[in-house]
């Protein structure tokens, strides 16, 4: 992991955070309970397959939530103005102790001194396949 001590000094292209998250089925149950999103495609293999999915998939909002946590870490108490993403591909979570590994890298996409903002882009992938597109947060400096 790497992080810059002062986001205000960050330059476009700087990688400011990099981490991986292992997601197991139990993590999906915990997110379902915490969020109230009990859609069975996130817990029930048979149901997921019946609607044409390869297996149980993670809540898109769980993946976005992991990115949000990375943004919070880097923002270190600064206000976040906005956070947006597109969902590009489902995160399939197999049963068992290996689950799936989600890789996450935050880079500085833009800085705007007059507006006092730094824009962070998140690259989020599973086995090299992008699962989010245009994941972007604007932090007030």
């Amino acid at each position: 992991m790497s992080t810059v001590t002062c986001l205000a000094d960050a330059e476009v292209g700087d990688e400011v955070w990099s981490t991986t998250h292992r997601l197991l089925r139990a993590d999906l149950v915990a997110y379902a309970n915490a969020s109230g999103d009990q859609n069975p495609i996130h817990q029930d293999e048979e149901f997921a397959r019946s609607v044409g999915l390869p297996d149980v998939i993670a809540h898109g909002m769980l993946t976005m939530g992991l990115v949000a946590s990375a943004v919070e870490t880097v923002a270190a108490g600064r206000e976040v103005a906005s956070f947006t993403t597109r969902f590009a591909a489902p995160v399939v979570v197999p049963a068992g102790d290996d689950g799936v590994e989600v890789a996450l890298v935050l880079t500085v996409a833009a800085t705007d001194e007059s507006a006092g903002t730094v824009t962070l882009d998140a690259a989020v992938s599973v086995a090299g396949i992008k699962v989010l597109n245009r994941a972007r947060a604007v932090v007030n400096i």
Binding site: A34, L62, M64, S69, E72, V80
Partner: peptide
């Protein structure tokens, strides 16, 4: 607290109360 733990928010492990909600 439950939501922060589920999304692995940095605030989740701090044990601090009256923290702002996670971003999502």
């Amino acid at each position: 607290d439950a939501f922060a733990a589920a999304v692995r928010s940095p605030g989740a492990s701090s044990g601090a109360t009256s923290q702002a909600a996670p971003l999502t």
